[in-house]
Write a protein that binds this DNA or RNA. Structure first.
Length: 264
DNA sequence: TTGGGATGTCGAT
DNA sequence: TCGACCTCCCAAT
């Protein structure tokens, strides 16, 4: 269930709860058993992210996690027995973090991490991200903008929800080819990505409607948010803006929700 | 109790 | 373009 904002929150959560003390590291499910044994008893020194990739940093090693479609971490009291599906448990004696269902859970080194990041596009959650790199890839592509926004080598961290919401906010027709996108349109979409992801990371919930007209700085002034989106998941309802019936299409096997009038 | 679907990605056709 | 991966949740039965 994770797009880039959720991964950022999980990194922050692990820094807050699990750094600074030796951890008991196990793999109740067994599929990470040898790796867990290799780092058992070490301290976590930090956690970083790029797009949907999470890196848990230990002395001398990094645990690379990609949650895929249904992976997740859940926090428990240390005394709670882990479910048999738990790939990785980090336990500081007080709390345990249980990872289940990841696509990737692997022990890597810093060179591996650099390679992984080099394959990814700029991450809108990073203040140092360079949108020009994404723009250059989009400008020379014949793929549709709907495909390109989901391509992690173009922009890292956007998933199916944010794709729909970014396209809607930018009033962008989803099937326009990358090479036909204007720089202004790209800038609108990039800024929306920055604002939406940053708000999602801050509040832990997706409310694109509340934050769409805000600057990144203004996001930090909001109180708690409830989930609210322009078009995602809303096929067959009336567009929030123009009241036209919204549509759902399939793009590269994923459902794309959009308004045929606002996004024409 | 069952089964369909999900905020993802890869590899085989 | 489709199925596999692998787990959880919730609506329908």
């Amino acid at each position: 269930m994770p797009e880039g904002h959720s991964i950022r929150r999980l990194a922050d959560l692990h820094v807050a709860h699990f750094t600074g003390a030796p951890l008991k590291i196990t793999s109740p499910q067994g599929r990470f058993e040898n790796e867990a044994a290799a780092i058992n008893g070490r301290e976590m020194t930090g956690a970083s992210t790029h797009g949907k990739h999470l890196f848990l940093h230990f002395e001398g090693s990094i645990v690379h996690v990609h949650l895929g479609l249904y992976g997740w971490f859940r926090l428990y009291d240390s005394a709670t027995d882990a479910k048999t599906s738990v790939r990785l448990r980090l336990d500081n004696g007080l709390r345990a973090s249980d990872l289940s269902g990841p696509t990737v859970c692997k022990l890597i080194d810093s060179d591996d991490m650099i390679e992984i990041i080099e394959r990814l596009g700029p991450d809108p959650l990073h203040s140092s991200a360079m949108p020009d790199i994404a723009w250059a890839k989009i400008k020379k592509s014949k793929k549709t903008i709907a495909e390109l926004l989901m391509d992690q080598s173009v922009i890292a961290g956007i998933g199916n929800i944010y794709r729909a919401e970014i396209l809607f906010f930018a009033k962008q027709y989803p099937y326009t080819k990358g090479c036909d996108i204007s720089r202004d349109a790209f800038d609108t979409m990039w800024t929306a990505a920055v604002v939406f992801l940053r708000a999602g990371a801050r509040y832990g919930t997706v409310n694109t409607v509340a934050v769409s007209d805000m600057t990144p700085g203004e996001i930090d002034t909001l109180g708690p948010q409830t989930q609210m989106m322009y078009v995602y998941g809303q096929a067959g309802t009336y567009c929030r803006i123009c009241k036209t019936t919204t549509l759902v299409s399939t793009v590269a096997g994923r459902k794309l929700y959009w308004c045929p009038r606002c996004q024409s």
